[in-house]
Nucleic acid binder design. Structure first.
Lengths: 228, 228
DNA sequence: TCAAAAGTGTTCATCTTACACCCATGG
DNA sequence: CCATGGGTGTAAGATGAACACTTTTGA
């Protein structure tokens, strides 16, 4: 039991983790096993421990609930409406993560909660204000994708230009011209062309590329501004 | 006294309020009258009350400490490093505000703390991690200014195109071409030209313009994207 | 009449967009 | 040999950058 002179809101983190598979952009959800909203789907998250940084709390909860670790995670927004949790005033710091579902396939969560990936057009109704948080995360993803090289986080290390283009098309919800897209993305000089090509495809195999972090960093230092 | 089953970090808000006067972009600071960091300068802010939204807490503290109210305020970032406050684990949600110093001149704060506007190149050393928060806010301001019509918040209702240009030059720290700037900003169609001109200037008086919020909103609905 | 800032267009380079066909591969 | 996606260039339009002089006003 812990006692304070003044009342304190509770503090949690919640994560919106996006993943990409062959079909669509998906969000990671867990099924709640305790009230409130027992049995409903919600964002993975939980209480921040004293002595723990916000990001550490977010990563810990994700690992506990969904067995995911080691990927891009960045703070999104904090929500503190006193009524957002029916129990009491709970402030949540939301995080926004990106994984590629090839390297991080869905696994049973360690603490036995049901977890799953849901297509964005196919989300169940969410507990708390989590739908709003997902909406904000999606807006943020769209914004970041245009101006920062985060899309690569959703792809395997080696990818084809068509895969990259499809990622942009799916997230931004519009079609892009193949020739213009390739011209633009290659002109940025932050992709390394590898010697490898796609395997096991029933047509001409596409060349595989890799994001060149070092080249990106160097260009960024020199005032280069990523934009797609 | 309030007792909880698990320990809770304390929760505060801190505000980085930018103001523009004739000379430079300034930040609003208060001098702390209690430990820790007693006597040092810090961002205005304080504890979030239970039952109070985050933004309400930020506005309340600002009003109490600096007598400022009724201006643009938006959430910035949350900081939760366990060591950022020497007393205990304190998580802060930072906000970022814009005021024009003509309509909101510096006044004595109601609760008798010393408050003041400091030029960005002239900041005293700040308590806690507040320098980092200011740096983040400045980055955000620079980013927002280019892509959202927030600059007007720093100017009086009626302003000249030169004032607007100087604002951009000061915040972005680079000079802009007068003709190109005017061409671009007018082509956006979100400024209303008024019949009025500058008063009491010792040279040809410039025409006064006004931000046309309605026109901006309408254009935004139709997929228009502000950019300067 | 002088000082100070307001106001105004054109040109050139760059970037963006639209668009269609042949090629390589595996089945 | 056919189906599938991979890969490639050009031309026209739009946008951004560079640049200097005349006008208005008050002191």
């Amino acid at each position: 039991m812990f006692t304070y002179e003044y009342a304190r809101p509770a503090l949690t983190t919640d994560c919106v983790v996006f993943g990409l598979d062959d079909e669509a952009l998906k969000v990671l959800l867990i099924q709640r096993d305790i009230p409130p909203f027992e049995g409903e789907w919600a964002l993975p998250g939980g209480f921040v421990h004293v002595g723990e940084s916000l990001e550490a709390a977010a990563r810990r909860e994700l690992k506990e609930e969904t067995a995911l670790e080691g990927f891009f995670l960045e703070q999104l927004h904090s929500y503190g409406d006193p009524d957002r949790d029916p129990r009491e005033h709970v402030v949540t710091v939301s995080y926004f993560g990106l994984v590629n579902l090839i390297d991080h396939p869905p696994r049973a969560a360690t603490d036995a909660r049901n977890a799953g990936w849901f297509g964005l057009d196919d989300l169940p109704s969410l507990a708390f204000d989590h739908q709003q948080i997902v909406d904000t995360a999606l807006e943020r993803l769209r914004g970041k994708l245009r101006y920062q090289p985060v899309g690569f986080e959703l792809l395997p290390r080696l990818f084809t230009l068509t895969e990259l283009q499809q990622l942009y098309e799916q997230v931004l919800e519009r079609t892009l011209d193949k020739r213009n897209f390739r011209k633009k993305v290659l002109s940025l000089g932050i992709l390394r062309e590898t010697d490898e090509v796609q395997q096991d495809v029933a047509h001409r195999a596409a060349r595989l590329y890799e994001f060149d972090e070092a080249a990106y960093e160097e260009r960024r230092q020199n005032g280069f501004h990523f934009e797609l």
